[in-house]
Computed example of a mutant assay.
Amino acid sequence: MKLVYIFDAYCGWSHGFSGTLHEVTSRHPALPVEVVSGGLFVGPRRVPIREFGYVQGANAKIAELTGAEFGDSYEQLFADGSFVMDSEAAARGVAALRQTAPDRAAELATALQYAFYVDGLSLSDPATYRTVAKAAGLDAEAILAAFAAPRTRAAAEADFRRSAALGVTGFPTLLAIDGDSVTPLAYGHATADEVDVRLAAVAA
């Protein structure tokens, strides 16, 4: 059995789920975790952040419910309103980090969200991946090369297809997959204890 975490690096609820994800993976270190980018802001949704007026209210609710931090630099980015969240670029970044350190995919996905939601860094900017790589003790040049490589763009597109094939309609979604059996463990928000109860039922 493995866990499959479908998220979007530009999704506030995914950012809010980071603490639960960390706790679940800490409690179950032997369970492999596959991280899949969902593609929230692609195509016609790739517009300036000011177009998403509901985001500030949603972020306040996320912070209240989960304790997730939304930093001053992010708030300034939102106040300016011109920033464009590009989930395809973010998915390439996730793929580049995942290729370099596959066993740390969940940790690195969380680090990317922190870079945006706390530090206000663009996930389209290669410099952000240099920062994340160095903080994680990874080879920054290898990750930057992977971020720009055609195969990484293909990996991002494959992630979007996998998310759709799994029937995911919102982020984050945490699944337990055992052979052909797919069991939802969390959708949008759940505590680590709630996930554990559902995981125990799957393993029973």
Results as ranks from 00 to 15, higher is better:
85 M>T: 05
85 M>A: 15
85 M>H: 13
85 M>G: 09
85 M>C: 12
86 D>I: 05
86 D>M: 10
88 E>S: 14
90 A>Q: 00
94 V>T: 10
95 A>D: 11
95 A>R: 06
95 A>C: 11
96 A>H: 07
98 R>V: 03
98 R>W: 07
99 Q>H: 09
100 T>I: 00
100 T>R: 04
101 A>G: 01
101 A>W: 03
101 A>E: 04
102 P>S: 02
102 P>Q: 07
103 D>T: 11
103 D>Q: 12
104 R>C: 00
105 A>H: 07
105 A>V: 00
106 A>C: 05
106 A>K: 07
107 E>K: 10
107 E>L: 03
107 E>N: 02
109 A>S: 14
110 T>K: 02
111 A>M: 14
111 A>H: 07
114 Y>L: 13
115 A>H: 12
115 A>I: 03
115 A>E: 12
116 F>V: 01
117 Y>I: 13
117 Y>D: 12
119 D>T: 08
120 G>F: 12
121 L>N: 13
121 L>W: 09
121 L>Q: 15
122 S>E: 14
123 L>V: 00
124 S>E: 14
125 D>L: 01
125 D>F: 04
125 D>C: 01
127 A>P: 01
128 T>Y: 07
129 Y>T: 05
129 Y>W: 07
130 R>W: 01
132 V>P: 06
133 A>V: 08
135 A>K: 14
135 A>Q: 14
135 A>T: 13
135 A>E: 14
136 A>W: 01
136 A>Q: 10
136 A>P: 10
138 L>D: 09
138 L>Q: 04
138 L>N: 03
140 A>G: 06
140 A>T: 08
141 E>F: 00
142 A>V: 10
142 A>I: 04
144 L>N: 07
144 L>M: 11
144 L>F: 05
146 A>W: 03
146 A>L: 01
146 A>P: 04
148 A>Y: 06
149 A>F: 05
149 A>T: 08
150 P>I: 15
150 P>C: 11
151 R>D: 15
